[in-house]
Amino acid sequence: MATDPVNLQIYLACGALLFVMGVHALVVRRHLLLKILAINIMGSGIFMVLLGVAAGGEGGVDPVPHALVITGIVVALSATAVALVLMLRVKAATGLARLPRSGPED
């Protein structure tokens, strides 16, 4: 049940690119909601690479990375929920849901 290696490489490369898109947005964007979304996109890229690696072995699909990914999804969801509530607290305290720094607009 080995996956076609070319398909697999597309998945791996797209996972890496998703991760970098997340890193870029995390640094460039100033709005906290966009930063939280960026971290989620980084996580999705990592999950994609993990699933690609799991399908790349010779002995069929490796179930352990799949279990890791579903654990990761749940942890990412919990972290996102806490981050969103923190963002709302920042907004309630400062009036703005973005980092206080002058610079080029988003």
Binding site: Q9, L12, A13, V20, V49, G57, V64
Partner: peptide, 21 residues
Amino acid sequence: AGLLVVAVLDLPPQSGLAEPV
């Protein structure tokens, strides 16, 4: 992005933990 894409495409194939499971 370039570094990571090269790195993930260069991963050696491995069977991981499929057999022990």
